[in-house]
């Protein structure tokens, strides 16, 4: 039996806009193995953002089942989902989403604040920053960092709680090609070293070709799930 970190079955998301029902995700099923590097691709309106939100436990599916790390999460309430996100999901956003007033260290500490009692919070945060190569930028604020460095802080923040999956939404979208390349290298390296499952949402084929598998979405359905 394979070790699946994610198992999705007939997952649906229907938005109601006035009288019209929009089937953003129309019954998708797939599994992702632990440690895999996956990219989700598709044109805009294909449902890839919806899928990312559901996989990241940011939203409730209308129907279907989603097992994350052996736990059925499709029926959980808002606060339970918050707990799952805190423990099992790391997020890397296109626009970094760092707290502008907080230092790199404080930004990385943030997920641990919501995790309850975490010993050595500061030490773990500095180690995470070290692992993304920012040991000398610990006390800098986001405005004092370059885009690539800011994204590294965001990656450290995503990994600090040892999540089961790392969700990256266009992680290189706001970066120049050099820093973008470095960030991709870093993500792939961390995947190799720590074995964290990496899911990248992108429309950039140069990104997706570096992943082991591509899930292509068209009109809320999986068009192709090839190796």
């Amino acid at each position: 039996m394979t070790d699946n970190v994610i198992h999705v079955n007939e997952l649906r998301k229907i938005y109601k806009i006035g009288e019209i029902e929009v089937h953003a995700l129309d019954g998708v099923s797939f599994s992702i193995e632990r440690g895999e590097v996956i990219s989700i691709m598709g044109p805009s309106g294909s449902g890839k953002s919806t899928l990312m939100n559901l996989l990241g436990c940011l939203d409730h599916p209308t129907d279907g089942s989603y097992i994350l790390d052996d736990e059925e999460v499709s029926e959980l309430d808002d606060d339970q989902l918050a707990g799952i996100r805190n423990r099992k999901v790391g997020f890397v956003f296109q626009s970094f989403n760092l707290l502008p007033r907080a230092t790199a260290l404080a930004n990385v500490e943030l997920p641990m604040r919501y995790a309850g009692q975490v010993p050595d919070r500061r030490k773990r945060a500095s180690e995470a920053l070290e692992s993304v190569g920012l040991a000398d930028r610990v006390h800098h604020r986001p405005t004092e960092l370059s885009g690539g460095q800011q994204q590294r802080v965001a990656i450290a923040r995503a990994l600090v709680n040892n999540p089961s999956i790392l969700m990256a939404d266009e992680p290189t979208g706001n970066l120049d090609s050099k820093s973008g390349k470095e960030i991709m290298e870093l993500l792939l390296n961390l995947n190799k070293e720590m074995g964290t499952t990496l899911i990248i949402v992108t429309h950039d084929p140069r990104i997706s070709e570096q992943t082991q598998r591509i899930i292509r979405l068209v009109d809320g359905k999986i068009a192709e799930a090839a190796a």
Binding site: G56, L58, D78, D79, A82, G83, R85, N86, R87, F91, F93, N97, L99, L110, P111, Y114, A115, R157, N161
Partner: peptide, 16 residues
């Protein structure tokens, strides 16, 4: 609003 969204993504509950 974005900051609140981020905090929630990182695991902040309503109460927090």
């Amino acid at each position: 609003t974005r900051e609140i969204g981020l905090r929630k993504a990182l695991g902040a509950r309503k109460k927090d």
